[in-house]
């Protein structure tokens, strides 16, 4: 494993820890999109099916279990915890899952490497992950008051796939020189979706101002 990959995974893990910390410490999920969090549960469930089939490493299995467990835990807090769920921005989190899940699934049926159950679900998870942040970004645009933890959570979540892009370039030149269009393009689109957010996040950080996205 190279440094980019490890940095990407750690950034991803840190983003989730930060979100759980926000929820547990402040007893609030204000500004967090339940739609996005539910999409991540779908992403992890469809991608990590091979947990029971192929063993890569202890690191790999542990991280998969952590991502699955924490994503379900976050959704549970937002839907079922009697204090936290009352802080959820129900009226503003209006994006429909269906419009993301269905096209991604159809695309995975059409564009994939092998027509097998696991491979189709793996491809679907990459397509869905690339757009899963959209409900969260829409919610942030509507929010007049984005707290630091929420802003940093989204920043780290976006940075993680960006670091994976470097990891893929590195692996291309050091390992087997194979082109992997599906993860590469999905990852590129995923990172590009954050571009605007990165710009405003870094600007607010440099100017020590509160983060605000233009509507």
């Amino acid at each position: 494993m190279n440094a980019f990959r490890l940095a990407g995974d750690m950034t991803h893990l840190l983003s989730i820890i930060l979100l759980l910390l926000k929820i547990r410490a402040t007893k609030s999920c204000a500004g967090i999109s339940l739609k996005t969090q539910e999409l991540y549960v779908i992403v992890f469930m469809s991608r990590y099916l091979d947990l029971f089939r192929t063993y890569y490493s202890l690191y790999n299995s542990l991280m998969k279990i952590i991502f699955l467990g924490t994503s379900m835990c976050i959704v549970w807090y937002m839907r079922s915890h009697k204090v936290v769920r009352q802080t959820y921005n129900n009226d503003e989190d209006t994006f429909r899952h269906f419009f993301l899940v269905l096209p991604c699934f159809v695309l995975a049926l059409l564009v994939h490497r092998n027509f097998t159950f696991i491979e189709i679900l793996w491809t679907f998870s990459l397509y869905l992950e690339s757009v899963a942040i959209l409900p969260q970004l829409v919610l942030l645009q509507k929010s007049s008051n984005i707290d630091n933890l929420t802003g940093t959570y989204v920043f780290l979540l976006g940075a993680y796939r960006g670091l994976y892009l470097f990891n893929w370039v590195y692996r291309f030149f050091t390992e087997n020189h194979r082109v992997r269009w599906i993860p590469w393009l999905s990852g590129l689109i995923q990172t590009a979706i954050y571009t605007d957010f990165f710009y405003y996040y870094i600007r607010s950080w440099k100017n020590r101002e509160k983060l605000k996205l233009p509507a």
């Binding site: 192929t54 994976y164 194979r178």
Partner: peptide, 10 residues
Amino acid sequence: ESHSSSHDEL
């Protein structure tokens, strides 16, 4: 073969 390069990622 199909399990190299990207299937071992998260």
